[in-house]
Simulated assay, not measured.
Amino acid sequence: MTELLVRFNIIFIAFLFLASTLSAQSYPDKNVDELLRKGIDKIINQKYDESKQIFSALDRQRSDLPLGKIYLAAAEIAQSYDYEIPFNHNLITDYLETAKSISEKLVENNEKNIWNKYFLALTQGYIAYYDAIRGSWLQAVSTGLSSISLFDDILKEDSSFHDAYIAIGTYKYWKSAKTEFLNWLPFIDDEKNLGIKYLSFAVKNSSYNYHLAVNSLIWIYIDRERYADAIELAEQALNKYPSSRIFRWGLARAYENINPQKAIDEYFKVLNSYPDILKSNKVNEVTLKHIIAQQYNKIGKKSEAKRLCEEILSIKNYSDYEKEKLESRLKRVKELLNELNRY
């Protein structure tokens, strides 16, 4: 398993459960619609503080809806995951639990309203996602399946709710991909192609969440070894969002298998894209330099690979959080350096 596929084991959970924001039918309140679009765009472009300001305004203006709190949690999670810093657990939990309470009351008051059902599905999806990235897998699966079930119900009522296809399509693909060894059983369906079909449909039709459908499909193409398709899709997304690390990670990973030097170039772009305030953040630096060193080694540039390994191992004063995150990787860096020193 490649380094970025390890990273993707978390990312795909994110896109499985984060995957639907709103349908291709814009939310009826034009002000809510505008604030959502602006806030989501800020998250894609990693302008997290600005996104929080927008979603705080939404929460103040429409406290009867859970959307402000859901996306305040989303922004906090995205920033911590992107920057590799500890989650603000109490704040995120408060946002999501409050959003869940609001959503359940809305469903109780009017269960026939498809938006109310959608709010609950989305809230449960984010709770599952947050549980997953913190390692609470059993709880994440339970809540996540409830979310997917609600999205299924939504599509049965309104097949034009296009963004629901992202969550369901991603779920169908990875459920089948991770249980391929059971596909010979009569009650286990292989739904990988159906998952890809759903996501391709979502890419063409989604409004708010085009970016999530695209990213999920990029990583599925990589899993299927359809690297050219992954590169084409990632480059299309980067034409629209040139500063987005989300798409550049996928682009770099896809290039590993057909043009390692290009992959190296793209990984360096990711490494150099973090804001100056994060220059002291060691997790991203170590992770990316290790991945780049592996690519250098693959193409025979041993001295460049050795230099990066030595740079990594010269880093000192790790925080407890960084030590925990990097313990396994630093062992692998030492192993790679020992291998390189034999040449």
Rank of each mutant, 00 (worst) to 15 (best):
K192Q: 12
D152E: 14
L120Q: 09
K175V: 13
S273I: 01
K204N: 11
Y48L: 02
E191T: 14
I44M: 00
E322N: 06
L271P: 15
N88S: 13
L122M: 10
Q79T: 07
S273C: 08
Y274S: 10
Y318M: 04
E311L: 12
E3A: 06
N31M: 11
K192D: 02
G195E: 01
Q53M: 12
N317F: 14
R248I: 01
D190V: 07
F55N: 05
I102M: 06
E335P: 00
K156C: 08
I133H: 02
L182W: 05
I196S: 03
Y81F: 14
W249R: 00
L22G: 08
L238V: 03
A234T: 00
I148P: 13
K112H: 08
W115M: 13
R224W: 03
L106V: 02
K192F: 00
S280T: 09
L106I: 02
N259V: 07
K100A: 08
S207T: 12
D41C: 03
S206N: 06
N113P: 04
I196T: 07
T179F: 13
L278T: 07
Q261F: 15
K302N: 14
A254G: 07
M1L: 08
Y118E: 10
P66H: 14
I70E: 09
I44R: 02
D223R: 02
K204E: 15
A99W: 07
F55A: 02
W219L: 01
N215L: 06
S147A: 13
L106R: 03
R134G: 03
F87Y: 11
Q53I: 08
I220R: 01
N317V: 13
Q294G: 13
L91N: 09
D41K: 03
W137L: 09
I85L: 14
A73V: 07
E225A: 12
K172C: 02
G68Y: 06
Y171Q: 08
V141H: 12
E108G: 04
E322G: 00
L91G: 04
I168N: 00
F12G: 09
D265A: 09
S51R: 00
L16N: 07
S280H: 07
Q124N: 15
S56P: 12
D320M: 11
A228W: 06
D64E: 11
L212R: 02
D320L: 11
W219K: 06
R245F: 03
Y198L: 12
D153I: 14
K42V: 02
